[in-house]
């Protein structure tokens, strides 16, 4: 075993990549949950995004078009969830599970002819001299545009939730939908918008796995990232910047265990591969004591007649 083959600078640079799918999905889910909706279908929307993005990128030869398609695919699937929970008032937990089961099946069906295909290469941004700064260059300035987009998205979500009227409305709907309704705001419309935003983010996150991280299409390739993203929102106490922190923590663990596998550490591969899930549980345990930050209407159905 030789741990010295792990280069800390490359590790940090790579963990940003590993964190991006979780970060995108968790940011989307954060907005959904702040609007008072619990969508457990993140995993399903991610895998649909992964295949939509992959297929479109292969067909058009443009990864960016793929990412747009992934956002559309994720949002389209989330509309099914929106219909079930907002229009037919179905149980949100059950509907989210259904979305994940359906998404996994549908993605496998759509992806049949894409197994073993190589997607077009998605280049890192060329930031010129910035990328050549020692240490900071490889860490901060040698990534692809979607990674920066994810960071910008966290900032944007924070700004909107905190400083805009729309963000205030969204939070009001999530905290007390009856009061928001009584004041004349469209609870269902806002929630559907939030759910679609969450779907689009999850879709892009999924496509980041199939187009950048792996890059390849295999069935069930998201392997629980969507669920980790859900845990991350709890971990972050529904605050955007903490989502960023948490995503990097998980990205770091994922990347480190991959590197340890590569370095041939004496721990069997299977036990290393368990670690992200075990650490998710551990973090959930440590942070579950405080639930005060949860939106008050989270997971409750709203109908004007009640």
């Amino acid at each position: 075993m030789d741990i010295s083959v792990i280069n800390p600078i490359l590790l940090v640079a790579a963990l940003m990549g590993a964190a991006t799918p979780i970060l995108l999905a968790a940011t989307g889910e954060l907005v959904v949950e702040r609007a008072g909706v619990l969508n457990l279908g993140v995993e399903g929307m991610m895998i649909i995004g992964a295949i939509c993005g992959f297929a479109v990128a292969v067909e058009t030869g443009s990864p960016l078009t793929g990412f747009v398609a992934a956002a559309i695919g994720g949002a389209a699937l989330s509309l099914v969830f929106a219909f079930l929970t907002q229009v037919t008032l179905a149980n949100q937990v059950a509907s989210g599970l259904a979305l994940t089961l359906f998404g996994l099946g549908l993605s496998a069906l759509l992806g049949q002819s894409y197994v073993g295909v190589k997607p077009p290469k998605f280049d890192d941004l060329d930031l010129g001299a910035l990328g050549e700064i020692p240490v900071l260059g490889p860490i901060l300035f040698s990534h692809d545009i979607v990674l920066y987009f994810a960071l910008a998205l966290v900032a944007a979500v924070w700004l909107v939730l905190r400083f805009t009227r729309f963000g205030l409305l969204l939070r009001a709907v999530g905290e007390n939908h009856d009061a928001a309704h009584a004041l004349g705001y469209k609870v269902v419309r806002l929630r559907v918008l939030a759910i679609m935003f969450g779907g689009a983010c999850a879709g892009v996150g999924g496509a980041y796995i199939s187009l950048v991280r792996v890059p390849q299409w295999t069935e069930g390739m998201t392997a629980g990232v969507g669920w980790i993203a859900l845990a991350l929102v709890v971990f972050a106490s529904w605050k955007p910047w903490r989502v960023l922190l948490g995503a990097y923590l998980f990205g770091g663990i994922t990347q480190l265990q991959l590197n340890l596998q590569g370095a041939g550490v004496a721990i069997p591969v299977e036990y290393l591969a368990m670690s992200p899930y075990l650490i998710t549980i551990l973090v959930l345990v440590i942070l579950s004591a405080d639930k005060s930050a949860a939106p008050a209407s989270l997971g409750r159905s709203f109908h004007a007649s009640n």
């Binding site: 037919t88 099946g105 496998a108 069906l109």
Partner: peptide, 22 residues
């Protein structure tokens, strides 16, 4: 018929069930 089609079929069943439960 691809195996995944059956998985989609099963998922659909749950969707419709939840929707009709209204």
């Amino acid at each position: 018929l691809p195996a995944a089609a059956i998985q989609v079929f099963q998922g659909m069943l749950l969707f419709f069930l939840l929707a009709f439960d209204l």
